[in-house]
């Protein structure tokens, strides 16, 4: 095959397109650009039960995404779930009496951590702890309680 100028150009175009494709995947499709480039600070919260929360789940405040869950581990002494969250430094004005709850997005959606700001003048710092937490709602427990209650009411009504 003869080596021509046009061929070089076409190969160059092909390689450029391919690399553009990789960039598209990295920037537009994955979450590479959203938080990893920003500075973040880490706070931890202890929950009685973190339910189906997973690493990389959203951390939001008033419905706005401000960070993500870094890791979830079990405290071997208190048997509490320790959730580490990295929060973007742009949102570094959270007071230290902020409370954290685990909610579900929609009925079948993913679980996320919602932070609600308190009224304290002190701010949460890197490595800070969130004291006020509310565990994930486990649907089976709620249903169990509801069934138990309605059975109790029926028994009282029969007397």
């Amino acid at each position: 095959m003869q080596h021509t100028h046009t061929q070089d150009t076409l190969v160059g175009l092909f390689v450029a397109f391919g690399i553009a494709g990789l960039f598209f995947l990295a920037l537009q499709v994955s979450n590479l650009s959203s938080f990893s480039n920003d500075d973040t600070y880490t706070v931890t919260a202890r929950f009685q039960n973190s339910g189906g929360l997973k690493p990389r789940a959203t951390v939001s405040s008033s419905g706005v995404k401000i960070g993500q869950v870094k890791s979830i581990s079990l405290d071997p002494k208190t048997f509490e779930s320790v959730v580490e969250m990295s929060i973007s430094s742009r949102f570094n004005t959270l007071p230290d009496d902020t409370s954290a709850s685990i909610f579900t997005a929609g009925l079948l959606g993913e679980q996320y951590v919602s932070l609600e700001a308190g009224g304290s003048d002190e701010l949460l710092k890197d490595g800070g702890k969130i004291e006020l937490t509310q565990s994930a709602i486990i649907l089976e427990k709620v249903i169990g309680q509801f069934l138990f209650k309605s059975a109790e009411e029926k028994a009282e009504g029969n007397k």
Binding site: F14, V15, F17, G18, I19, A20, G21, L22, F24, L25, V29
Partner: peptide
């Protein structure tokens, strides 16, 4: 790999 990236993008 370039072709696969193109395939996914398109």
């Amino acid at each position: 790999p370039l072709l696969a990236a193109l395939f996914s993008m398109v």
